[in-house]
Design a protein around this nucleic acid. Structure first.
Lengths: 205, 205
DNA sequence: TGAATACTTGACTGAAAGTACGGTTTTTCA
DNA sequence: TGAAAAACCGTACTTTCAGTCAAGTATTCA
């Protein structure tokens, strides 16, 4: 990694945690450069303006999330070959991952961006939308595979089910932040898992 | 209502919609007073500073939400006297309410506040926490009543179930905002309803 | 070693945020 | 109806913030 990239990453790290804690507009450039020990001109060498920073932050965040999810469900797929069980294992692994974060999930940039719509330009808003559509796509495929093998016990659409996964996580971030109880995230993921089980798993016997 | 209260309400209306669209710190007092056609001094007559505005906004929001929920579940209770069915009807009524909002839910102040923790003073943060605890309490009672009559088909806690209601709504606000699809909210509430049904409803026959 | 790359220095602008306080009008209610 | 209380105005001031500009220096890598 070149030196410039390293600095850029550091600036983004500082910015990201500030954005998640205070919001984008309360995150001042002066504050970022003070913490990064760099000059203002140095900052603008890397990002032509604040919006470009916003975009870079979102792109990096979405990229990382995707890698994490790919990884997680690949691990799950190594442990089983039934689509339903793969998904249930994947959710369990995800819950474990969240349980290992003592301070809980740091927050989702997608959520902060959607609540600050009027702050960003059209491109960033669209990027944000695509990120969520991407999640929908990912989980839709998984649920389609499950539906193909197990008839659901209720009339539900795969898209809505797919959204339910993202929905649970986004909601749980808000809840656990507001309550200061990281545990909420784990509980909610396990409740989602409970639903998937009840919805698809054949009654024993 | 005195004239001052009317002005105060108007200021809060403008502020609230701006906070939900841009976040608190991007909501400038100059902008609020311009839209309200009042001077800056006029604004500070009503709120001693921005934090007091934040607190007033949250208090009013939580109050209104509680009235709405009281109303909704009272209506549901008028239509049935079984706790499970009351809850299922309540969720359906809530879904209908959301479906009637053409632009979707305007956004939840509790969610924006929890993502901007570092902006508010301790009192406001605690108020926010109490609001969520209040929801937990409300729904916990409902689920306890249901559990007393119907044994759940999975090992779940009433608190986690209660949180799932708020969780679903908070998550759905984020999802529908990011996707620009208000329909997501309705779908997610109905999925929650589906879960409650599968979890508690006895198998027919 | 030399040309990119990655910054620093420092001064500056224009806009907006928030504070302070005395003065003025408008309501309200007795 | 009139005086006190409530509601609001004018204005001046301090900070902060995003962003610009020109010119220079240090670092890195090919």
């Amino acid at each position: 990694m070149r030196k410039g990239e390293k600095t850029r990453e550091r600036l983004m790290d500082i910015a990201e945690s500030s954005v998640l804690a205070k919001g984008f507009s309360a995150t001042s450039i002066d504050e970022i450069i003070a913490e990064a020990e760099i000059t203002k001109s140095g900052f603008f060498y890397h990002f032509k303006d604040k919006n470009e920073l916003a975009q870079a932050l979102l792109e990096r965040y979405v990229e990382r999330e995707n890698v994490l999810l790919d990884d997680l469900f690949k691990k799950a797929a190594d442990l089983h070959d039934d689509p339903l069980h793969i998904f249930l294992i994947g959710l369990k692994l995800f819950a474990d991952l969240m349980a290992d974060m003592p301070k809980g999930h740091p927050g989702c940039l997608v959520a902060t961006y959607c609540y600050h719509e009027r702050l960003y330009d059209a491109k960033v808003i669209e990027l944000n939308r695509q990120a969520v559509l991407n999640w929908r796509n990912r989980f839709s495929k998984a649920f389609q595979d499950i539906c193909d093998r197990y008839p659901p016990r209720d009339d539900v659409s795969v898209e809505a089910l797919a959204d339910m996964v993202s929905n649970t996580v986004e909601g749980a971030i808000v809840m656990s932040k507001a309550l200061k109880e990281p545990k909420v995230m784990v509980d909610q993921i396990l409740l989602l898992r409970s639903y998937i089980k009840l919805l698809f798993q054949p009654v024993p016997g």
